[in-house]
Every structure is written in C-alpha cells, then in structure tokens.
Amino acid sequence: MKIGVLAIQGDVREHLRHTQRAGAEAVEVRLPRDLDGTDGLIIPGGESTTIGMLMEEYGLIEAIRNRARSSAYPIYGTCAGLILMAKNVIGKSPARLGLMDIDASRNAYGRQIASFEVPLPVPALGGTPFPAVFIRAPKIQRMGDGVMALASHDGEVVMAEQGPYLVSSFHPEMSEDIRIHQYFLEKVEKLARVRQ
C-alpha cells in the first residue's frame, strides 16, 4: 500500500514516519504527478492559507478532486487538512478541496495560548484514550447527513468521517501512538478491496 503525504509545508516528516510505522509505504506529494500510484493521501497540519494557495498554484487541488471524482480516493486531513477538506469555511476561507460535507471555522479555539493537549476517548480505537494535541485548532461547526462523528471533546466533534474521508481537528502525529494512522490504513485497504 502506498500513501501520499502532501509535502507543501507543516508536519510532513512526522506523518511520513507514522505512516511507515503503521506498515505502508509513504511518499511526499509536491506536484500532481506525485499522486500516481498512491492509494490514499494524508494532508498534514500547517498553515491552511499557505498550503491551500500553493496546492492551487501547482494544480494539486484539481488533480486530487479529479481523482476523488473518478473513484473513492481516501484522504485524511488533520488540523489545516480538515479545513482544506471542508465544503464550507466560516470567515476567511482559503483555496481548498472542499470534498467533505462539513463547515469548519479556523483557529476556533483561539490563539496559540489556548492550544492544549488532552487524552481523548476515541471509541473506534478501543478503550485507551488517544493523546490528542490541538494547536490553533479548527472546529467542525456543522456536519452533513452522511458524516459520522468518531470523537468529541467538550461537546464538539473533533474527529469525523464520510465515506473515504477522515478528518481530525487535532494532530495524531505528535506522539508515538500510531492507532489513527492504522485506522486510516485499514480504511484504505477496505476501499481497495471493494474496488477489486
């Protein structure tokens, strides 16, 4: 299995490492041709305005959208990646993929001083809470009918999925815990089996 990690800016190295540790090949995606042969894509945290703008300039938004249109293409967006996956963004909205039926608001928890970490119960991962790190994190303000919540914190959904798409407002790559990457890889594998 080969997973692309969008390598424009942000926590690229850590996602490559987690994906490899979870048992898949991981490649950097900077240009549309780098998507060839990938079974799925991870969009790391970083600055969503910067990442979205540069994705658009280098034709990545169109290339990824086309891929998603022609067949189920699994994508996991974390933090900035969640914003880039959201259909609507409240306030200043960056160029993005908009593939998932959610509304997101940027930096909704506040500035860096409000960033936090918390042991987060994620039922789909089993009983042990996941060490979730929220950095200038976005919030999901609305979820469409097909969207399923996977984890909540303080009454707000912080991890969700819709078909081949997975998003989290927190960073799963900042601890040694690789369960969310494993969860995403299982999703990719299942979809690959369905396609065959």
């Binding site: 390598a7 424009i8 800016q9 942000g10 926590d11 690229v12 190295r13 850590e14 945290g45 970083g46 600055e47 910067t50 933090c79 900035a80 860096q112 001083i113 409000a114 960033s115 936090f116 970490e117 918390v118 042991p119 987060l120 119960p121 809470p129 790190v133 950095i135 200038r136 914190h153 960073h171 900042m174």
Partner: peptide, 22 residues
C-alpha cells in the same frame, strides 16, 4: 478530560506546523 495548556509539546508543536514555511 483535563485539557493541558502551555505544555512543551504544545509549544514546540506550533513551530513544527511552520516547517517548510517563511
């Protein structure tokens, strides 16, 4: 669950998100 703010993880984490940028 108890949120922890201002941890070293959270502080160095923002710098990690700026990597590759200007």
């Amino acid at each position: 669950m108890q949120e922890q703010r201002g941890t070293y993880n959270v502080k160095s984490g923002l710098a990690e998100m700026l990597k590759g940028g200007v």
